[in-house]
Structure formats: structure tokens, C-alpha cells
Amino acid sequence: MIDSIVSVINEFSKYIIPFLLVGIPFYGLIFKKIKVYESFVEGAKDGFTIAVRIIPFLVAILVAIGMFRASGALDLLLNLLSPFLTVIGFPPENLPLALMRPLSGSGSLGLLTDLINVHGPDSLIAKIGATMFGSTETTFYVLAVYFGSVGIRKTRHALVAGLFADAVGVFSAVYICRFFFG
């Protein structure tokens, strides 16, 4: 039952982008008589300026994350936390992914790939990892890009709220998967 729903959704998702790329100009040209080519070019112009504007913010965030990751501090944190995690039912194998997820998209994808290869896709650890990956975001990257694009430097409560949401996503992934696949 779920299998077929998922395959329908995944099949359907392949058509979303092509549909949008054709459907939106279709609506504009046929129903509203918009000069779609001119509008497209006009809008596309902003792509360059926005991308360039976020560079300093991205450099700042990614350099700090890169230094932190390369130092091996994550392993240290892992050793420190794992006895405590076992007590609350959080598999220590999933901790690196949970800690990496807000920092780096490619890094956390690498960790997830590794988890699935080592433990197998039918393992609880792989399922928790995949759920974690799907329910959290690379908070630091999003923060740097979104705020950087408009030059916001004082981010107020956005980071705390984003990290809190990630933590809730991580713990939800653990306990929901334990409940379903325990």
C-alpha cells in the first residue's frame, strides 16, 4: 500500500519541474498575453547579482565549518556524548550525521551513504539516518545564503530557532523510527 503510494509520488515528482517550466509560460502567453521571453530575461538578470552578493557570507560560514570538521572535533564530541546517548536510546552511530547535518549538505550525505553501506538499508540505523536527513536542513548554509543575499548581519533568534528545529527533527527521527521499526 505505502509502496505504491511512494512510487506514484516519486513518479509524479519527475514531472514537476518540466511541468512548471512549460506550464507557467503557457499560462502567461496564452491566457494573459504576456511577453514571456522578455519577462524571463528581465527576471533572470537578478540571478547574477544575488549569487555574487552571498559570496562573502558563504566564505565566512564554510571556512569556519571546514576548520571545525577537519580538526576531528566531531569525533571528540562523539566520544564524549555516546555513553549518555545510549541511555536515552539514541544510537551513537547516528550522532555524527545529526551533528553534521546543520553544518554541511555534502558532508552529511557522505555520512548517510556510509551508514547505509555499513549497516544495510534494512537496518534501524540506516532508517533513522535517512529519516534524519530528510527532516532537517543545512541550517548554517541556509542562514548564510538567505540573510547574506540581503546583507542582514544581525540574525536575532533565527539561528537558535533553526538549530532547535533541527534538534527536534533529529530526536523525532530516532524515536519515530524506533516506534515503527524498533
Binding site: 507557467i24 499560462y27 502567461g28 491566457f31 524571463f40 527576471g43 533572470a44 540571478g47 549569487a51
Partner: peptide
């Protein structure tokens, strides 16, 4: 990618 989606977005906005 930005240029592509911002272009399509502009059409969606104007229509």
C-alpha cells in the same frame, strides 16, 4: 539555476 527560476518566477508574477 537562480537565473532560470527567477526568470520563470517573473513570468508567474506578471501573469
Amino acid at each position: 539555476i537562480m537565473a532560470l527560476w527567477l526568470g520563470v518566477m517573473k513570468i508567474a508574477e506578471e501573469s
